[in-house]
Design a binder for these strands. Structure first.
Lengths: 250, 250
DNA sequence: CGCTTACTTGAGTCTGGTCAAACGGGGTGG
DNA sequence: CCACCCCGTTTGACCAGACTCAAGTAAGCG
């Protein structure tokens, strides 16, 4: 049950907000010049996190809030005896640490699945944002509500879908989200991650994934899962993907 | 699989914000006079919903947002074939319909478990709130983040807890939330609701609840579940209840 | 009194869990 | 260069927790 600790470093700012790698993507909305100026000052630095390293740990209360610029991570919780549940995955445009930023301390941990680059904001200045840029404040709430929707979907999955439906749903969603962000069609995940997301054992997860492979819907490779047919997966899961557009981000 | 449709009526305003039944509870924070004035104007009416009636339906896009004043409801989603998953319960102080208010349409339904009284706000005026009362805007985000935390816990439960742990966790949380709001120590729930929350079959839920009864932790009565020992349930679940204080609400 | 709703209980089945072992690729130290 | 090890994946055999089907009970109601 070894979980690496890797590197976690704050380097120089390589991406000023004016060159934010998110803005070109059609998934995301535009900023007004005014907002852009504010956000530029709001940003305090960048954080790089290696695969397997921890971004935020349960119980800690970070002074920062992050926006994912690159890479993929996952949020998870542990039970006393080590059972792990992955709650959701975070991708470019998602906020990390909002819960601790607002309520106090983190009730979950975040770990990088693929090398991540995060934009750092100071939690202290959040109220300033709320006071002076209600549009951005609105966006933050929007993002929180969107996360809530995803969690709702995940709960439906865990509670009422069969193993193969769950797996199909998970991979379809991940592939879609990666695709929307212009990423390669390879989900950098191990079967242990899938198991901990779906609430299944590793062995049964493996058999379930093989079943999906045999139906030509996915291929398992070194380094992750290649999705051949998002629509096919969605059909297995009984789920209808909806393309997301003009999503806000900060 | 019959699910009643009941009554859903908008009556006169019985509780002006100055006499809001939530404010006396220690769980909730105080308003500033300024905020109180604004919220009073923000409130557009009250909505009464019978037990079993629908507050909001999946797919609809309501022009309103609600705060629960009295009663208990639950949010749920359905799969094509009728499988139902209860996502969470809403209680006094919780916001209902925020997702549709921000993002567009509801991705889940809300039904009353015990007769509900809700405070009605217009979605249109939300941006006004964000512009002029950043404190309240902050609170709304706080509430959304808190809901996220609860969903995280529920996911952990569904994914990694055993049947009896899940049941104990659910009942402990519900009892605690009801208690904090000054309610009677009786959860007005049927075993079918419990089953649909825990992702279990009705039969297995029944056996699991009997096990909790035999351990003297709960008693099942006509009308719901009486919790004898929240701490005991929490211990079974491997969960630590944390008392919530000064929770914001709108 | 018959009907419905909610809870119980029994019996047999099956999905998914556990234990155990093996395989294959990549890295490392001898 | 090879032996060894580690990690992630794969497979088999067996077990158990949870599901389904079926039937029965008890309380509430028109």
């Amino acid at each position: 049950m070894e979980r690496g600790n890797g590197t976690r470093s704050t380097g120089t700012v390589r991406y000023p907000c004016t060159k934010c790698p998110l803005r070109p993507l059609t998934t995301f909305r535009e900023f007004t010049p005014d907002e852009l100026t504010f956000v530029s000052r709001f940003k305090r630095g960048e954080l790089t996190v290696d695969r397997g390293a921890t971004v935020l740990a349960e119980g800690s209360s970070s002074a920062h809030i992050y926006t994912v610029l690159k890479g993929i991570g996952f949020r998870y919780k542990l039970l006393e005896d080590g059972r792990r549940q992955i709650l959701n995955f975070v991708m470019p445009g998602d906020l990390v640490g909002l819960q601790s930023g607002l309520i106090g301390d983190m009730q979950h941990s975040v770990e990088a699945l693929a090398p991540m680059l995060l934009c750092v904001f100071e939690r202290e200045r959040l109220s300033e944002l709320y006071r002076n840029h209600s549009g951005l404040a609105f966006d933050i709430t929007w993002i929180a509500a969107r996360e809530e929707q995803m969690l709702d979907e995940n709960l439906l999955s865990l509670g009422r879908r069969t193993a193969i439906e769950r797996a199909a749903y998970l991979l379809a969603v991940l592939a879609k989200r990666i695709e929307e962000r212009g990423g390669a069609p390879l989900i950098p995940i191990t079967q242990q991650h899938v198991a901990d997301t779906l609430g299944l054992s590793l062995v049964h997860t493996n058999r379930t994934l093989r079943a999906l492979s045999q139906r030509q819907l996915i291929q398992w490779r070194e380094g992750g899962c290649a999705v051949n047919d998002i629509g096919g997966l969605a059909r297995v899961a009984g789920w209808e993907p909806v393309k997301e557009k003009n999503r806000p981000f900060v």
